[in-house]
Structures are given as C-alpha cells and as structure tokens.
C-alpha cells in the first residue's frame, strides 16, 4: 500500500508543476498583465502604473516572478482582492463550507439515484429502455438552463421552494435550510447521476458477462445476490475512479449552479469576481480547484488499490 502512495504522489508533482505554469501563463496573457484593471482606470497615471509595476515586482524576469508567485501561493499568501481589498485567502475560505454542503448533498443524491438505477438496468431491459435515454438527456442538459427552468417552475410559478440563497433572512430553521438546498442540489446532481449511471451500467453489464458470474449462477445463488454481491464488487472499483475523477466537473457545475441560485459558495464568488475582473480571486479559485482535483485523483488511485487487490500487488 505504502509504495503506491509514494509512487502516485511522485506522479502528481510534475502535474502540479504544469498546472501552475499554465495558470501563471494565463495570468500574464491578460491584456496589460495583472495590472490591467488599473490601465482602464483614467484616474491612474502612467507613472503610477510604472511605480506599481516596480513595487509588485513585475519588472523582474518571468522565471523569478513565477517562483515568487508559487512560493507565496504555497504559504497561503494569495494576494488581495481588487474588489474589496481583503486577503483572497479569507474571502475564499469563508465561502468553502457552503460549497461543500451543496456538493456533498448533490453527490449523495446522485449516488442514491445512479447506483440502483444502473445495477437494475444492467439486468432488466425494461428499466434500461427507460433509464438509458434519460441518462443521455441528463448529460446533454445545459446545467444553467435546467436550473433556470426549475427556478421558474418551483419557485416562481408554484412558489413551493425559495428561488435563491442558502437560508431565509431571519436565519431560518433546518426545514428552511433544506428547502433552500433542494433545487441547487437537484440541478447539480442531475448531470452527475446521468453520467455515473451510464458508466456503472456499462461496467455492470461487462461484469455480469464474466465467467465467475455464470459459475455463481450455476451454483444456484439467487440472481439478486449475484448482481449485488458478486458483479457489483467487480464493477465498483472503476466506478469509484470515475466518481472521483468527476471532481473537475463538480467545480464547473458548482460555478454554474451556485451563480443561478445565489448560493453563497466559492462558485458564486468566482462569477462575482469574473464580473469585476478580480484576477487574484479568479486565479486562487483555479489553483485551488486544480489542486483539489489532483488530490481526488490521488485518492481515486488509492481507493482502487484498496478495493481491488490485483492493483496493489502489481509490480
């Protein structure tokens, strides 16, 4: 087990390097570089910009700037928001609990739909006939449009659920929190459940065709037990990988869903900052998102090694 952890971690290092290079490049690709917000401001004189450039170290060689930026990032020094002058680190951290709440709810919802549907669909054609087209529809659905539609129907037309926010103005109890959570979680879960059920159905289908399943059947083990205990055991490790690898999709989904429902997480912080061209916050979001995906990739590798003994005994 341990050698795998070490090997995978070593594998992740160059990825981290490339990611940081891409993001640093993006930052400097911006028209006017990191100072472009000032360039558009008529009240800032060219001399001031030159002074700022020196003060912020932007006149140093790119390589030096990159290393300084990376070192500062690792230390948690993510710069200051252009919008309100507060440290980016604080602004991001205060939004994380809301995002985790939404993502957690969405993933739980998506898994409770995807796993039973996929497992049953793999053996029952009737269920498959219905669920397969629904799943294709689910992955084709534009998330923002689906969100707007649900808002239109359940919040505006029917008035059953609040259209935005995380809780009522006066705080609100548990029921109020749940009511606020429901629509955004459903929107985020829909795309995930569709993709995941498609994948699990396919690997269940393959698992059910394996010889050992036929052996289990011939020994008189019930079909339900063969499906849920024997075949699912084989289909699960690759499924776990796919679920964890979808983390980057979660980051994109959270941006869209949170913005539509004004959910106060880092996703809506991102779109607010995008509207104000608040670079430092945007870059922190991307860097944090990429590192989170990378870490989840690592966890995925380890989870598969744990679930599937063949992987950990390799080499």
């Amino acid at each position: 087990m341990l050698p795998i952890v070490g090997r995978r971690a070593l594998h992740a290092l160059p990825l981290l390097l490339i990611i940081s290079l891409v993001l640093f490049g993006l930052l400097h690709l911006a028209p006017g570089g990191p100072l472009s917000t000032y360039l558009e401001n008529p009240n800032v004189r060219p001399e001031d910009i030159e002074r700022l450039r020196k003060a912020m170290g932007l006149d140093r060689p790119l390589g030096v700037q990159y290393l300084a930026w990376l070192a500062a990032f690792v230390r948690g020094d993510w710069g200051y928001s252009y919008a309100d002058g507060r440290p980016v680190f604080d602004r991001v951290m205060e939004r994380i609990p809301a995002t985790l709440e939404l993502i957690g709810a969405a993933c739980a919802l998506a898994l409770t739909i995807a796993i039973p549907v996929a497992v049953v669909a793999a053996s029952r054609r009737l269920v498959d006939r219905v669920s397969a087209p629904l799943a294709v529809a689910g992955i084709s659905l534009p998330v923002f449009w689906f969100g707007l539609l649900l808002q239109l129907v359940f919040a505006n037309a029917l008035g059953w659920l609040p259209s935005s926010g995380r809780q009522a103005f006066d705080g609100g109890g548990f029921a109020d929190r749940m009511a606020h959570l429901l629509l955004p979680a459903v929107v985020l879960a829909a795309a995930l459940a569709a993709g995941w059920s498609r994948y699990l159905r396919r690997s269940m289908h393959e698992a059910l065709a394996l010889p050992f399943v036929a052996v289990a059947r011939s020994r008189g083990i019930s079909e339900a037990r063969v499906t849920w205990r024997h075949a699912l055991r084989v289909a699960l490790p690759p499924f776990v990988t796919v679920v964890l690898l979808d983390a980057s999709m979660l980051a994109s989904g959270a941006v869209v869903t949170e913005s539509i429902f004004a959910w106060p997480g880092i996703g809506s912080l991102f779109t607010e900052s995008l509207a104000k061209r608040d670079y430092t916050v945007l870059m922190a979001f991307l860097m944090l998102g990429s590192v989170a995906v990378l870490v989840l990739n690592l966890i995925a590798d380890l989870a598969v090694a744990w679930l599937d003994p063949r992987v950990s005994s390799e080499r």
Binding site: L15, I18, A251, S252, V255, F270, L274, L286, S290, V293
Partner: peptide
C-alpha cells in the same frame, strides 16, 4: 494536468 484544471472556469477567465 490540463484535465485537472476545471474546464469551464478556465475558459471563462480566458
């Protein structure tokens, strides 16, 4: 590495 960077936010910034 490119697959690790969340696609939509990256595109939105660019």
């Amino acid at each position: 590495a490119m697959l690790c960077i969340p696609r939509l936010p990256l595109l939105m910034i660019a």
